[in-house]
C-alpha cells in the first residue's frame, strides 16, 4: 500500500493505492496523524485502492471522527464501494464515486 499526500490550502488529499488491510492500515493511521493543524477538510482518494478490510474501515471511521465529519471519499471503485455498503458507511460518509 502507498499513501500520497497533496495539500491544497486547508484541504488535504490522501491518495491511497494498493491493499488497505490489517497489516497496511497503520500506515494510513500514521499519515492521518501527521496532517498539520491547518487542515480543515480531508479527502481520501481511493482511485487506485484495490482492497479494503475492516482494519481499513476502522481507519476511515477514526479519520471521520478526527476531522469532525469533514471527510470525503473520492473516486471509490465499485468493489470497495460494495464493502463500504455492507458496513453501512455509504449512509454516514460523504462519498464521491
Amino acid at each position: 500500500m502507498a499513501v500520497e499526500k497533496i495539500t491544497n490550502g486547508t484541504e488535504a488529499v490522501l491518495k491511497v493505492s494498493g491493499w488497505l488491510d490489517t497489516q497496511s492500515s497503520p500506515e494510513l493511521e500514521k499519515a492521518v496523524a501527521e496532517l498539520d493543524g491547518n487542515t480543515e477538510t480531508l479527502v481520501f482518494d481511493f482511485e487506485k485502492l484495490e482492497y479494503i478490510s475492516s482494519a481499513g474501515l476502522r481507519q476511515i471511521v477514526a479519520a471521520h471522527k478526527k476531522m469532525n465529519g469533514k471527510l470525503t471519499l473520492r473516486n471509490v471503485q465499485s468493489d470497495i464501494m460494495s464493502v463500504l455498503s455492507m458496513a453501512g458507511f455509504d449512509k454516514r460518509l460523504h462519498i464521491e464515486a
Binding site: 475492516s54 474501515l57 476502522r58 481507519q59 471511521v61 477514526a62 471522527k65 464493502v83 455492507m86 458496513a87 453501512g88 458507511f89 454516514r92
Partner: peptide
C-alpha cells in the same frame, strides 16, 4: 453504532454478509 467502529467489531458482520 457507526462511531464505535474504529474500535473494531465489523469483521463478523462482513463475514456473514459475504
Amino acid at each position: 453504532d457507526f462511531e464505535s467502529f474504529d474500535k473494531g467489531g465489523m469483521g463478523i458482520s462482513l463475514i456473514k454478509q459475504i
